[in-house]
Structures are given as structure tokens and as C-alpha cells.
Amino acid sequence: MKAHVDKDTCIGCGLCPSVCPEVFEMQDDGKAGEIKSSVPESSADTAKEAGDSCPVNAIEIE
């Protein structure tokens, strides 16, 4: 499973790292990014929750 944040769409609300800090972080540009593009099995459910919770649908989980 992979995670990707679309930087052009992200508004930097900080929700995804608060839901899944193992996969997402706020970066120097003020927007979210992936710490790891490959989502660990132990974080799969929370990564999906972060993607579903994104208010602008900037997160893709495959």
C-alpha cells in the first residue's frame, strides 16, 4: 500500500499527521507530506482514515 499527498491540492490543515503520524508529517512548505511512501501494515487503517478525512481530498492511498 502506498500513500501520496498532492501538494497542489493540500491546504496544510494538519489533519493527516494528527490521524496517522507514522505516515504523514507537516513539511517546511507548510503542507503535508509522506514520511514513507510505503504504508506499513500496522498503519494501513489509520492511513486510510487520514485519506478519507482530508477536507480537500489531497491524499491518495493505493
Rank of each mutant, 00 (worst) to 15 (best):
D6S: 12
M26N: 05
M26S: 11
A50E: 01
V56D: 09
H4D: 13
I61Y: 08
I35Q: 07
K36P: 00
K2C: 00
P40G: 01
I11M: 12
S42T: 11
D52P: 10
S43T: 09
S37I: 12
P40N: 04
S18D: 14
E49M: 09
E25H: 00
E25M: 13
K36G: 05
S53T: 11
M26F: 07
S43D: 12
A58R: 02
E25V: 10
C54F: 05
C16Q: 01
A44L: 13
A32I: 00
D52H: 02
E62K: 14
M1D: 11
D8H: 13
S18Q: 14
V23Y: 02
S38H: 02
M1W: 02
S37E: 14
A47W: 00
C20Y: 04
S18C: 07
A44M: 07
G51I: 09
S42C: 02
K48E: 13
V39P: 13
D8V: 00
D29Y: 13
C54D: 03
K48A: 02
P17Y: 04
M1F: 08
S53R: 00
E49A: 15
A44D: 02
A3R: 07
D28C: 01
V23E: 01
S43H: 01
K7W: 06
E41H: 03
E62H: 13
V19A: 07
P17V: 06
I35C: 01
P17I: 09
D6Y: 12
G12K: 10
D29N: 14
G12H: 12
D29E: 07
E60H: 06
E25I: 04
E22V: 08
E22F: 00
A3L: 13
D8Q: 14
I11V: 15
I11F: 08
I35W: 08
S42Y: 00
A47K: 07
D8C: 05
C16S: 09
E49K: 09
F24C: 10
K31P: 13
A32P: 04
C16V: 02
Q27R: 12
K36R: 04
N57A: 14
E22Q: 11
K7V: 15
D45K: 09
S18I: 04
P21D: 06
H4F: 13
G51Y: 10
I59Y: 11
A50L: 12
G14P: 11
N57Y: 07
C20I: 04
P17G: 03
V39H: 13
F24A: 00
A32H: 00
C20Q: 03
T9A: 15
A50D: 04
A3K: 06
A58I: 11
P40W: 08
E49L: 10
S43P: 00
E60T: 14
K48H: 07
K7T: 15
A58G: 07
V23C: 04
V19R: 04
C10A: 11
I61Q: 05
K7H: 13
K36E: 10
P17H: 03
A50M: 12
S43A: 15
Q27E: 12
G33D: 03
D29M: 05
S43G: 01
C10S: 10
S53D: 11
P17T: 11
S38V: 15
V39I: 15
G30I: 04
S43W: 09
I35H: 07
D29A: 00
K2F: 10
K2W: 10
E49Q: 09
C54Y: 11
T46L: 06
S43L: 09
D6C: 10
K2A: 04
S42L: 10
M1E: 05
S38K: 10
V39Q: 05
C13W: 00
C20W: 06
